[in-house]
Nucleic acid binder design. Structure first.
Length: 198
DNA sequence: TGGATGATGGCCT
DNA sequence: GGCCATCATCCAA
C-alpha cells in the first residue's frame, strides 16, 4: 500500500518576505511536480539566495535584464528555470515586482513518486538521486517548460512541509568568479541531511 | 556572427 | 584535485 500524501500548496503570501528569510523558510517545504507519468516530490533540504542587482553572483546583477532573467523581475513565487551546461536548475523568484531576486533550490530529499524519479534518473545509491540542483530537476522532471509558471498550483508547486530547527548557513557553491559576493553566507541547509549536495 | 562563458555532474587519476 | 561534455545565452565587433 502506497503512502498517500495530500499536498497543500503554500499560498502566494508565503513568498512575500525578504529573500534571505524565504530561502531559510523554504527548507523543510515540499517541492512537487506532476507530469503525464505521475506525481513526484521531495523535501527541500538545501537552498541559496541571490540578491539581485546588488549581488555579483546573481544573474540579475547590475540590472542585467535579459530574456533569460526577465522572470526574476516578476512578482515573488514565479518559477525561474535555466540551463547550465547539460542540466536544468530551478529557482523561486523572490523580491517584489521589479526587484530581481531569487532562491535556488539546490537539493531535496525524495518523498513520494520515488520509482518515477529513479526511472528518470537511474542511480545506484539513493543519496545520489536528488543531492544537487541539476540532479533534482532531472529526477522530478522539471524543464524549461516550467519557466514563467508560479509555484502556487500544479503542475509545479511547493507544499507545506515540516518545521526544521537545525538549519545551518554558509557560503554559496560554484560562484568563485563573483568577487566579494562569493563570501556571503547565503546558503542554507539541514544539518547532517544525506541529500545536501556537499 | 562567433567566441567566451557558466549557480553542474560524472568520470578520471 | 582535474578534465570536459554540451548548449543557451550574452556581448563584442
Amino acid at each position: 500500500m502506497k503512502k498517500h500524501f495530500n499536498f497543500i500548496p503554500l499560498s502566494e503570501t508565503f513568498y512575500e518576505q525578504p529573500t534571505l528569510d524565504l530561502a531559510k523558510q523554504l527548507i523543510g517545504q515540499i517541492l512537487v511536480k506532476v507530469t503525464d507519468e505521475g506525481m513526484s516530490s521531495g523535501i527541500i533540504v538545501e537552498t541559496e539566495a541571490y540578491l539581485g542587482e546588488e549581488d555579483q553572483a546573481a544573474h540579475s546583477f547590475q540590472k542585467r535584464r535579459t530574456k533569460r532573467t526577465e522572470v526574476m523581475y516578476n512578482s515573488p513565487g514565479h518559477v525561474y528555470v535555466y540551463q547550465m551546461h547539460t542540466h536544468h536548475l530551478v529557482n523561486v523568484v523572490s523580491g517584489e515586482k521589479e526587484n530581481p531576486q531569487a532562491v535556488l533550490i539546490r537539493a531535496v530529499e525524495p518523498l513520494s513518486g520515488i520509482d518515477l524519479m529513479i526511472k528518470r534518473r537511474p542511480v545506484e545509491k539513493m543519496t545520489n538521486l536528488t543531492s544537487g540542483p541539476g540532479k533534482l530537476t532531472k529526477a522530478l522532471g522539471i524543464t524549461m517548460e516550467d519557466y514563467g509558471r508560479t509555484f502556487f498550483k500544479p503542475p509545479l508547486f511547493i507544499a507545506k512541509g515540516i518545521k526544521i530547527n537545525n538549519v545551518l548557513e554558509g557560503k554559496r557553491i560554484g560562484i568563485d568568479n563573483s568577487g566579494e559576493a562569493r563570501h556571503y553566507p547565503y546558503r542554507f541547509w539541514i544539518n547532517d541531511n544525506p541529500y545536501v549536495s556537499r
